[in-house]
């Protein structure tokens, strides 16, 4: 059975029809071609599929698309405007926080969610915010450094 739904993806309202068992991840990747959102485990353990749902980080592999009906989704593709990168993206590049890059989209979105709630995080807070984003290449250090470089020191 096919169900109609609406989704605002990266500021664009999209109407689509999906079967009930389709996950948000499958809709993003297969129906909308937004392949920046990755599948690493399918069970909510690796965080490669992290997207922001109404500005909050969630595992797109653990949500039915229909559960997101009427909500706002931000994927990695929605972060940069044209050739202007988001500050977090710039920081990841500058600090060498990227190796294979498969975890990077989810990692950046988790960082965004953190910095929006906690503009001046401690290192511990940064690390805690990333526990759901698995990275096997970098050992996390440069990722943590990149995010900390954006902490708004002194004004918090």
């Amino acid at each position: 059975m096919i169900y109609p739904m609406k989704l605002t993806v990266n500021d664009e309202l999209i109407e689509l029809e999906v079967p009930a068992h389709r996950t948000l991840l499958e809709v993003l990747r297969n129906d909308l071609g937004l392949k920046g959102t990755k599948e690493g485990c399918g069970a909510g353990e690796c965080g490669a599929c992290t997207v922001l749902l109404d500005d909050e980080p969630v595992n797109a592999c653990l949500i039915l698309a229909l559960q997101a009906d009427g909500k706002r989704v931000t994927t990695i593709e929605g972060l940069s405007k044209g050739s202007n990168l988001h500050a977090i993206q710039e920081a990841f590049i500058r600090h060498g926080a990227i190796q294979c890059g498969f975890c990077t989209p989810g990692m950046i979105l988790s960082a965004k969610a953190l910095l929006e709630r906690t503009p001046n995080p401690t290192e511990k807070e940064v690390r805690r915010s990333l526990v759901g984003n698995f990275c096997r290449c970098t050992g996390y250090q440069k990722i943590v450094e990149a995010i900390l470089s954006l902490a708004k020191r002194g004004d918090g």
Binding site: L34, S80, Q89, I93, G96, G101, I108
Partner: peptide, 21 residues
């Protein structure tokens, strides 16, 4: 010199097409 990966801009934007993409 410590330079970022030459394809880092694609990777941070989710534009890199991996094999499974």
């Amino acid at each position: 010199h410590s330079v970022p990966q030459i394809d880092a801009r694609d990777k941070v934007r989710g534009m890199t097409e991996f094999v499974s993409d």
